[in-house]
């Protein structure tokens, strides 16, 4: 019981901070929309994959991009908390480190999911307007949200693991930019993965983000060689295992975290 209240407290704090920092929310929505419209339209004028235009192809990739950047970056706040003494206030409370980690994950995932939800709503509006050729059904939205949730938890854990080991926000940023960009570019988010060779294709196949993109693309657009390639259950299994492993490592990292 006591642990649940503590987890709720940490979640509440992240959520409140998130709702009060409007600029964070706005910029996290604007950026993906710029991608969708500028890159999507620009490349879309001479590219299309499968039955749909490039913009629609890109859309699941944009959802992942939002989740990736926002969730991993969330870890920087723990570095800030350590810089001031807020982290000590939490660590000295009579609750387990595991609960602190869970509270943080839930807080960060909520922030990230809210941002992706806004993009889903915008996507639905665009598809009604005939700009985006995507099948939004209750089922496809539900599956997309579940995929986003599972991958976000894992990505959030990555950010928190790195954040718990770092002492400066600058160092954190440096490390995650080495991580985020390969994860993003080599996930099939902006180009199809079926036709790549050698090392690149190996990286694509071990990148867990690939399976999140593939699963969402399969359900939002359709399956085919240039669209969703894998069985959706396989996609789901891979990202679930990935997130479970990250949460396990994160729990351990929090237990070992030094001040």
């Amino acid at each position: 019981m006591s642990e649940l209240k503590g987890i709720y407290a940490l979640w509440y704090r992240e959520f409140k901070v998130f709702t009060r920092e409007r600029s964070r929310v706005v910029s996290s929505i604007i950026n993906p929309l710029l991608w969708l419209f500028i890159i999507g339209t620009g490349l879309g004028s001479f590219l299309s994959f499968g039955p749909v235009g490039y913009q629609a192809f890109l859309y699941p990739g944009i959802l992942i991009m939002t989740s990736l950047f926002s969730a991993v970056f969330f870890g920087v706040y723990i570095v800030w908390d350590k810089k001031v003494d807020f982290m000590k206030e939490v660590l000295v409370a009579p609750m387990r480190r595991t609960s602190i980690f869970i509270g943080k994950i839930l807080g960060g995932s909520t922030d990230t999911l809210i941002q992706t939800m806004i993009l889903i709503v915008i996507g639905i509006a665009l598809s009604f307007a005939g700009i985006l050729q995507i099948h939004f059904t209750v089922l496809s939205i539900l599956v997309t949200v579940v995929f986003l949730f599972v991958i976000t938890v894992g990505l959030c854990a990555i950010g928190l693991i790195i954040g718990s080991q770092m002492e400066s926000p600058e160092g954190f940023q440096l490390i995650i930019s080495f991580l985020i960009f390969p994860l993003f570019f080599l996930s099939g988010a902006i180009f199809p993965i079926y036709n790549q060779s050698g090392v690149l294709s190996t990286i694509v196949l071990v990148n867990p983000v690939t399976y999140a993109v593939d699963g969402m693309r399969g359900v939002l657009i359709g399956r085919g060689p240039q669209l969703g390639q894998f069985d959706p259950w396989l996609d789901f299994l891979v990202i679930t295992i990935f997130s479970a492993i990250m949460v396990a490592i994160g729990t351990y990292a929090f237990k070992k975290m030094k001040l």
């Binding site: 009060r20 001031v84 003494d85 807020f86 000590k88 206030e89």
Partner: peptide
Amino acid sequence: IVFQEPSTDEI
């Protein structure tokens, strides 16, 4: 405990 550095959340 009251820590040396500020430990309340400003936001």
